[in-house]
Design a protein around this nucleic acid. Sequence first.
DNA 1: CTTGACACCCAGCAAGACTAGGTATAGCCT
DNA 2: AGGCTATACCTAGTCTTGCTGGGTGTCAAG
Lengths: 104, 104
Amino acid sequence: MRAESLKGHLDALILAVVGAGPCHGYAIIEELKQRSGGSLDLPEGTVYPALHRLEEGGLLRSSWSKDSGRRRRIYELTRRGQRELGVRRSEWRDFSRAVESVLA
Amino acid sequence: MRAESLKGHLDALILAVVGAGPCHGYAIIEELKQRSGGSLDLPEGTVYPALHRLEEGGLLRSSWSKDSGRRRRIYELTRRGQRELGVRRSEWRDFSRAVESVLA
DNA sequence: CTTGACACCCAGCAAGACTAGGTATAGCCT
DNA sequence: AGGCTATACCTAGTCTTGCTGGGTGTCAAG
């Protein structure tokens, strides 16, 4: 997967995973890998800063949990995050259709 | 259309348009707009540098034409460009499928 | 003769994702 | 006990990429 393919779509992917249920960063990475059949194998250096950006922007909210001695930061969608997920989904459809119509 | 959506896919779009027949820069912009139903309305400052990059990279070849006093730089695919177009198309399919499987 | 469409160009900027490091806990193997 | 792997987090700096905002010049229409 070309590195830049992702640009501008990462937020939508993360919002979608967290939208399916509260989740911590490492698990989000695993989930993306699994759901995509291995083709979305994102480095931590990509995902963690994105999570911070999304929280900063008010789309995610986080809290620390200490399950079995391991600290985890659990993320969930804010109301704005839910709305934004909808917007991003439909933006993806538009973009995807547009590219398809050119590549076809 | 979010500005960053495009990132990493512009080359594929341009290669696809030029792949359909030799074309000059301005016409490529028009063609992208038309084929996408208006949603891919790229600024010249995006497309011209991309064309130069692609020629620099050996995927496009260009020559000047002077039709009716107006100079135009006509681009066409090199053999490597044709191969690359195929690669990019299949990369887009993979990426698209992956995103779809996460957003679904 | 000015406005708009056509047609090209580029320097500098901003944003996004990755590289390459770092910290620390838990469990397994030898 | 020591080492290795997986889990789990973090960040400064880098690179690529597309856009902004400027510029040049031709041609046709009003």
